[in-house]
Structure formats: structure tokens, C-alpha cells
């Protein structure tokens, strides 16, 4: 069986960039993605802060444009989910959909997925009023009242998006201060007729049998609760890294993100991590592509040293 210089797990911005750099360096590369190339970029309506696109770019457009870099390059690309990685002597054996793939290095670009609120009946009501993607589901709530939960950039961006569709958007955040960009918050605060910002509040109960018919929120300061007559609840409370397949000796932080040094090296020699799966402060497309290039270069140097 042939041995790849590098297997890249995940086809988001980090994985695409890592593949691009490694193939151009002359490495034999395989890239595995479970869905279509692009990762979480595909779930973003428009991206305004990726340099090179001063007028902004649609998420799917950026995903396609990034993926097009790989079109003329020679590498293995496959749809598949990695279920385990086992070190055997000098190489890693990855199990992909029941088949084995062997590689000298592994670059983890598996990203993250949305975190849930953890409210009772949240799972049953997902797709029936509970949503994690405003651009996908916003249209089903045209002219209705909805809630957005969260305080980061994603929550603010999605509230802006929903404010153009819904009759009213309640933005609910457990703290007083928002982590998201001031430019978004300023825009939202000026839309007092359509956006109500409820600080220091947490969602406590979803109402409705077949569909969401309301949400009870509670003030973390006074304990007072209040029923919002919303038909939609959009949840943007952070991400959980996709790491279930990782060997135990890859060190993770308290939230489960992969710890690396500044060269994207994990605690296990030969395994690198890039993008949202990595433990870091700033999770953006622009940092993901930077991580991808750095990880590729580190993997290339590692391979060179091994081959001497």
C-alpha cells in the first residue's frame, strides 16, 4: 500500500490551504472531507473581513473560490469520515470508511460544529423552530418574531441578517458586554424598532409541542423570568471541536480544542493542527488559512528531517 507524505483531515479553509502548500512543495497528499469543500464558510451568509474582498463575499462563493485552488493540483481527494488514527512505527494508519490509509504526517483541520443550548426538548424541536443556521432557515420565519441566543460575532451577524426578514428579533446574551465586533453592535443598537437587545439573560425553557411557540428567558441578575412569543430560536453559543477520532495522546485544552505551538505542532510528533479545531483566541477564515500554511510548512520540514 502506498504511503502518503501527509493526510489532511477536513476541507475547510485550513485544510484547503495546507493541501495547496504541501502539494506545491512536492508532497504526496490526501485530503478527506465528509461533505463538500468549504466547511463552516458554507454556513455564513457573507464574509466582510477576509482581506482581498473589500465589498464582502458570499460564504458559498468564498468556499468555491478557495476549493478551486486545488483543481489543477495533483492530490487524492475523497469524501469520507476518519474514525481513528493509530501510530505504527514511523507512520500513522487512518481508518476511513472501513479502509486503511497510511501517512507520514497528519494535519488536523477537522474544524468545529455548533454547540447546543442544552435545554429540554431542544433536539426534538430542531428543524421545527430551533435552528443553528440563520441563512438556511431564516426565510421560514418571514414576518414572525424570533430570538437569537449568543454574544459573539456570529450571533451579531446572524441577528443583522434576521432583522431584514423577521418582524422582530430578540438578541439574548447572558452577559452585559458583547464579545462580537462593535461595528455590528452599533448597527443593531440603532435598529430599536426591529431588534431588542436583552442583556444578562439566559434561555430557560422552549415552549410548543410540534413547533416552537415561545421561549422563556430569565434574568441572571434578578432571576425574573419572561415569556417571549417567538416562533424561531436561533442558537449561536460557540463551537465544539471535531476531535472524536483523535488518539488519546494528542493534548487538548479544557474545552477540547487541540493544543499546538506557534508552528501548529501538536503534542504528538508528525501530527499538526490548523483552523478552528486548534486551541486559540481568534477563529476566523483569515486565521484558518494562516494556520493551514504554517502547518503545511512545519509538516514539510518534519518530513525533510525524517528523510535525512
Amino acid at each position: 500500500m502506498s504511503v502518503f507524505d501527509s493526510v489532511i483531515i477536513g476541507g475547510g479553509p485550513a485544510g484547503i490551504t495546507a493541501a495547496l502548500y504541501l502539494v506545491r512543495s512536492g508532497c504526496r497528499v490526501a485530503l478527506f472531507e465528509q461533505l463538500t469543500m468549504g466547511g463552516q464558510v458554507l454556513q455564513t451568509e457573507s464574509i466582510e473581513n477576509y482581506p482581498g474582498f473589500p465589498k464582502g463575499i458570499k460564504g458559498w462563493e468564498l468556499a468555491d473560490t478557495l476549493a478551486a485552488h486545488l483543481d489543477d493540483l495533483s492530490l487524492e481527494r475523497a469524501t469520507g469520515k476518519i474514525s481513528s488514527i493509530v501510530q505504527k512505527d514511523d507512520v500513522y494508519v487512518l481508518s476511513v470508511e472501513g479502509k486503511e490509509v497510511i501517512a507520514k504526517t497528519v494535519i488536523l483541520c477537522s474544524g468545529a460544529h455548533h454547540r447546543e443550548l442544552g435545554l429540554p426538548r431542544e433536539k426534538e424541536l430542531t428543524g421545527h423552530g430551533v435552528s443553528y443556521c440563520a441563512i438556511c432557515d431564516g426565510n421560514f420565519f418571514r414576518g414572525q418574531e424570533v430570538a437569537v441566543i449568543g454574544g459573539g460575532n456570529t450571533a451579531l451577524e446572524e441577528t443583522l441578517y434576521l432583522s431584514k426578514i423577521a418582524a422582530k428579533v430578540h438578541l439574548i446574551h447572558r452577559r452585559d458586554a458583547f464579545r462580537g465586533a462593535k461595528i455590528y453592535l452599533d448597527r443593531l443598537e440603532s435598529m430599536t424598532d426591529r431588534v431588542s437587545i436583552l442583556r444578562s439573560s439566559v434561555p430557560v425553557m422552549l415552549h410548543g409541542d410540534a413547533e416552537v411557540e415561545g421561549l422563556t428567558i430569565s434574568s441572571v441578575k434578578t432571576g425574573e423570568s419572561r415569556l417571549l412569543p417567538v416562533k424561531g430560536v436561533f442558537v449561536f453559543v460557540g463551537n465544539t471541536p471535531n476531535t472524536a477520532f483523535l488518539p488519546k495522546n494528542v493534548q487538548l485544552d479544557e474545552q477540547g480544542f487541540v493544543i499546538t505551538d506557534t508552528e501548529m505542532r501538536t503534542s504528538v510528533p508528525g501530527i499538526f493542527a490548523a483552523g478552528d479545531v486548534r486551541s486559540k483566541q481568534c477563529r476566523q477564515v483569515v486565521t484558518a488559512v494562516g494556520d493551514g500554511a504554517t502547518a503545511a510548512q512545519a509538516a514539510f520540514l518534519y518530513l525533510e528531517q525524517k528523510n535525512v
Partner: peptide, 10 residues
């Protein structure tokens, strides 16, 4: 819809 595009080919 991004996630729709993501599963479309599958």
C-alpha cells in the same frame, strides 16, 4: 443554503 450545498453532492 450552505449546508444544502454541502450535502448536495452526497
Amino acid at each position: 443554503c450552505g449546508p444544502c450545498r454541502a450535502i448536495g453532492p452526497v
